[in-house]
């Protein structure tokens, strides 16, 4: 692993417009290549934390740096380039349901093209190949021309991962990626994320509700409560008692 952290939070606070505290004085580093799992009760601020990393949410104070660059000043093109290197996976997959799997996967590549080329669908042959390879990684090549809404939830999530791979991301953020999947599909999806982490060295940050899953896949677990980090340990040091404590109310 690299000495320099890939992502670093310094005194980060987030207060929503309505006064809700989203994040409270967050300080921690994420080393390159880590598989980090964020746990916490509903409303603890997990989604908020994740979305500040690709600037889908703005922070109120403090600083987030990615590869040693503060990200808060990015605008327009530079913000899009930042987002290009950070893939995001959602609980509801967020595929374009009426479009084919191929188009959905290719849509992950649009930031490499000028707008007019994306609009006219002028993807290079190399990128069409890349789409097939991305689907190969999630074992879904046979669905290339299927419409996204004809897939099962687990398949849709795998297409979403393939879309993210098209970005060639250094980081993948996954916000409860398995919350709407059955136990078996859950393993498949988590295994894929783990493989991308180990084989490609992609830094993966996953929000999870399940403590068992967190222990199975994480290199490190961070616990949030009311927007603050209340727990932060490498997986080797995590005990069952710790985790029960995170999930205790009050």
């Amino acid at each position: 692993m690299d000495q320099q952290p890939i992502i670093s939070f310094k005194n980060v606070n987030k207060i929503y417009n309505n006064g809700t505290v989203g994040l409270k004085d967050i300080n921690f580093d994420i080393p390159r290549g880590e598989f980090l799992v964020v746990v916490g009760l509903s409303g603890a601020g997990k989604s908020t934390l994740l979305r500040t990393i690709n600037r889908m949410h703005e922070i109120s104070s403090g600083e987030i740096t990615i590869e040693n660059e503060p990200i808060s000043d990015y605008k327009g093109q530079s913000l899009r380039l930042l987002r290009r290197k950070i893939g995001m996976i959602f609980q509801d997959f967020n595929l374009i349901k009426r479009s084919t799997v191929q188009r959905n996967v290719l849509s992950g590549r649009v930031s490499y093209y000028p707008t007019w080329k994306s609009v006219l669908n002028l993807f290079s042959a190399a990128d069409k190949d890349r789409a097939i390879h991305a689907l190969e990684r999630v074992n879904l090549t046979e669905k290339l021309y299927t419409r996204a809404d004809e897939l099962s939830g687990g398949q849709q999530q795998r297409v979403a991962i393939a879309r993210t791979l098209m970005q060639d991301p250094k980081v993948i953020l996954a916000d409860e990626p398995v919350a709407s999947l059955d136990p078996l599909t859950t393993q498949t999806v988590m295994d894929i994320l783990k493989r991308l982490n180990q084989e490609d060295g992609i830094t993966v940050i996953v929000n999870l509700h399940s403590v068992a899953l967190a222990r199975q896949y994480a290199d490190r677990i961070v616990g949030l409560r009311a927007g603050a980090v209340v727990y932060d340990k490498a997986i080797a040091d995590v005990t069952e008692a710790d985790l029960t404590k995170i999930y205790q109310t009050a």
């Binding site: 380039l81 995001m88 649009v110």
Partner: peptide, 18 residues
């Protein structure tokens, strides 16, 4: 899907189109 396209780094017009 708009959120996803935004997270991918797509421009406004591309987001609307896709």
């Amino acid at each position: 899907p708009l959120e996803a396209m935004e997270s991918v780094g797509a421009s406004k017009v591309t987001i609307i189109w896709y």
